[in-house]
Design a protein around this nucleic acid. Structure first.
Lengths: 253, 253
DNA sequence: AGCTGTGAAGTATTTCACAGCT
DNA sequence: AGCTGTGAAATACTTCACAGCT
């Protein structure tokens, strides 16, 4: 077993094992599934059960969880409450992180109003825009401020994560401003690549890209059904047997 | 190297090579970068140049493009227009695919109004909701219809892709309805796992998950700076040397 | 001389299959 | 008997480094 013996420390809390990125990307999904399970009143769940709820296979789930240090009981399963606690700890969700949102156009507006953040460990503490016509507008209890006020607000609220929902042309400038005030994590909805210094993490969500990936698979399916194609699964007749399709992963690596 | 020799077929159009998923996920980013390059008037671009514009390294880019069949010229680079055409063909963007959007709440509203789709190969042809209060509302020239009208509309408009922007509780039912009318590609914004028959592709975007992944890295960075930590890159002092951070990939897998 | 295309090596991730705890 | 934790095998992906075309 060639694994990370992180030095001694016989305490309950495992001082952050360094997880594979692929594992990190799945932990939030496990957490969501666990919250669902908890609501149904179950106190423990097997790897098989949780894997189904999270849309992965059970071997993968077990390996992922084993990286956390293993909080299951053989013959029984995982303690739901304990596992929730562990994953929340590892993901750093024990503190409610402050998020600043820049760009309250079409998409930014929706994000500002999205109530899914609060329950999942985040609170939006400030809204910014560069367009004078939007400054002062109130959304969900927050007033939109000019982006140049970012330094004051960031210091005041100790912003941990910046979300960019501006047009592509403005995104790099905003990223620079965020980095300048010490933000080291950025979620970018603008369709462009951001240059940031080492140590700053950027994740990107591009809606058109998602559709284009689906388009590729549509195209391929169409090409396959056009062929005579011996072997394997017919795609034309929809098979009745439903199944969770595996690899509905949440965003890659 | 054990790779996919797909049988002969010596035509100009490469009858859809089966690309690695990781490559498929990057092609849209290359396409976007190429459009930017085209606007600057360049007719060719090197792998190095395009790789920079897309935020990947050049070896990866060359390997990705080589899967398409190779449309570069040694000593020169890639013909921008030709490469755009090739990628659009492979992604199936030569036809403008019809998208149906279900759920015009907070997020759905924003998606319905997002103008980034039109320029990237898609047109939203119908909006649906289950809430009677929303039916009849007009957004961006489209009227919101009741989800039960999906069968008629889908037949009429030959919907290729369904986008689910409903609350989690409603998402599975909507997915079933989409599948029932023959939709085989779904983009799911609801925070839940969907069960779909084989042959149906689901991609998931979950905003809270993205933030949680960033949170993990914040947490880890904080843990690292807390240590004395010999070796390697200091994270505390921001180094001035900017760089595109690699792996700003658009969504996983 | 420059730049692509690609075997081969290196790394990461998934899956198998089973030992070992409860 | 049931279910976790994990080596080992299999697969996927990335990177290197250079042959070979222009």
């Amino acid at each position: 077993m060639s694994q990370h013996r992180h030095p001694g420390r016989a305490g309950a809390v495992p001082a952050l094992p360094d997880l594979p990125e692929a594992t990190v990307a799945r932990l939030p999904e496990y957490l969501r599934a666990l919250h669902n399970v908890a609501e149904t009143g179950h106190e423990t769940i097997s790897s098989e059960g949780l894997a189904n709820a999270a849309g992965v296979n059970s071997a993968k789930l077990r390996k992922d969880l084993s990286h956390l240090g293993s909080y299951g009981t053989r013959g029984v399963g995982y303690d739901v409450a304990l596992l929730v606690e562990q994953i929340e700890y590892v993901l750093g969700l024990t503190q409610r992180r402050a998020v600043a949102l820049v760009g309250v156009g079409n998409l930014g507006h929706a994000l500002a109003g999205y109530d899914g953040f609060a329950g999942r460990g985040f609170r939006i503490v400030a809204l910014f825009d560069a367009d004078p016509r939007r400054i002062g507008e109130e959304i969900n209890g927050l007033v939109v401020r000019h982006i140049d006020e970012l330094p004051e607000v960031a210091a005041e609220e100790s912003v941990a994560i910046g979300v960019i929902a501006t047009p592509a042309a403005a995104a790099q400038r905003v990223a620079d401003q965020l980095v300048a005030v010490g933000v080291t994590s950025i979620l970018n909805f603008a369709p462009c690549v951001l240059a940031v210094p080492e140590g700053v993490d950027v994740r990107k969500v591009d809606l058109a890209i998602e559709l284009q990936i689906l388009s590729f698979h549509e195209h391929r399916k169409a090409a396959l059904t056009a062929l005579p194609a011996a072997g394997g699964s017919a795609l034309t007749a929809l098979p009745g047997g439903f199944a969770v399709t595996e690899s509905q992963e949440a965003i890659g690596t």
